[in-house]
Design a binder for these strands. Structure first.
Lengths: 249, 249
DNA sequence: AATCAAGTTAATGTCTGACATTATAATTTA
DNA sequence: TAAATTATAATGTCAGACATTAACTTGATT
């Protein structure tokens, strides 16, 4: 991330190394070769990989290298490893499927920043959902909103219902990446938030807006849906700011 | 050194139990111990960790174990490792920093979906950048755009310049999460794209729009900047669609 | 025969030591 | 001073031995 090269438009940079994100050291080739092996053997979820030492022999590398590669996969949740049971596939691995490990560094001060990246994703998600959803999905969204309101008005813990509501929208978008990204960003947010402030009841004031959002999405009115979501996000942001300026931190 | 045993006057510890450090199996204990070491030494971003072998000695474990732990951190982006330069902190490690490993599963069919989540982030990033940037950052952005155009018109490989341009915008947003997220989504996209289609020269047609984008951001005109970025994203999307409907797949 | 206990064994987990590789630091040379 | 060369210190890799553990096998008991 050096911006020192801002001025240097090196003339000799013809064959500038493409700074691909190197996985780890260079276990990438091993992982790639392994992917091919797995695909060729048509291994699926739950199937067993050969022992480390055999993989090493087959690929002409040391066992330690295979080990590090498999551990990297383990850290990504792609395989599970077990003393006697060996290494098993926990997820589908093929040359066409790439598992991108995103690591977000979240600092306590960055509650707002976290919210800032969530905001456009949520807004876009409802916009897409309004355009893409099936009729049934629209009904589900409206129903979930009703549930959420009921729980909320009963004074119970509404977080589960809220989560289900938003999941329904993400699902209606037809793009699982929205769910994956937003969900995990949210988890990170909560992890930060919970530490100093206890349970997060953030966003309570936005709940009455949710049925309106649901109706807009179900009508296929993406513009209105996006506007409502924008308002919701603004309210949450205001809450975050209030808290951070609040009692102490 | 280890002051863990300083307080423990265990009643049954008559024998000089040298095996004070109970290993729980994986490398988490090593990472934990390392975190303590780092915090106690008040190491910050960019600072150097001791060599693997010294860490191993200090923690009474083998070098391989330390290695695996550090590689895990590398995969999370917490440290960078380099032959002679050793291991350096790339990010703050403390109790207040939470490192959230996001794993996105990207399939070949989801080029469009990947683009769909990148789109709102890019647009929001330029909007925020236009609002938040310092004057100097504005100048850098314009300069990068000029560089990009120069490289492009010279018929050279413009990907590096393009990357630097967008990084400048993300940096100007003041929110590192934009850079982190978009960058990695983009890497995932490229990784998918390269496999079947060779080098990605995607987005070439959008380059002439970049100076316009840079001017808008530098002027602080977030609305215009967002519009231009929106157009860029649309063009890229159209290209993706064309390719997928193209020759074969 | 069915069930539980003990032993076997095949895999990962770990340590050690050696050597290879390489990016930085030090030195020499122009 | 600056460029080229050599040294050096760290990671990268390999190989072999041993430890640990959990699935598998076998045997004893009811």
């Amino acid at each position: 991330m050096t911006d020192a090269d801002a001025t240097s438009k090196g003339p000799t940079s013809s064959r500038e190394a493409l700074d691909h994100l190197e996985q780890s050291g260079d276990s990438r080739d091993v992982l790639e070769a392994l992917s091919v092996m797995i695909e060729r053997a048509k291994l699926g979820v739950g199937d067993r990989l050969p022992p480390e030492i055999e993989i090493a022999k087959k690929l002409n590398v040391g066992r330690s290298k295979v080990r590090e590669a498999l551990i990297a996969w383990q850290n990504m949740g792609i395989v599970t490893r077990n003393k006697k049971a060996g290494t098993r596939l926990a997820a589908e691995v093929s040359a066409n499927a790439i598992h991108m490990p995103l690591t977000l560094k979240l600092e306590a001060e960055s509650l707002l920043r976290t919210h800032a990246v969530r905001r456009p994703l949520e807004i876009e998600a409802v916009r897409v959902a309004a355009k893409q959803m099936t009729e049934q999905q629209g009904l589900i969204i409206v129903a979930r909103a009703a549930e959420l309101m009921a729980v909320y008005e009963a004074g119970e813990d509404w977080r589960g219902a809220d989560h289900r509501f938003h999941s329904a929208i993400h699902e209606a978008s037809g793009n699982p990446l929205f769910e994956q990204l937003i969900r995990q960003i949210q988890d990170g947010f909560n992890a930060i938030y919970e530490a100093p402030f206890g349970q997060p009841h953030l966003g309570q004031a936005t709940i009455p807006l949710h049925p309106e959002l649901a109706r807009a999405v179900a009508k296929g009115d993406g513009a209105t849906a996006a506007k409502v979501m924008e308002r919701i996000m603004e309210m949450v942001e205001a809450e975050v700011i209030a808290i951070m300026e609040g009692p102490d931190v």
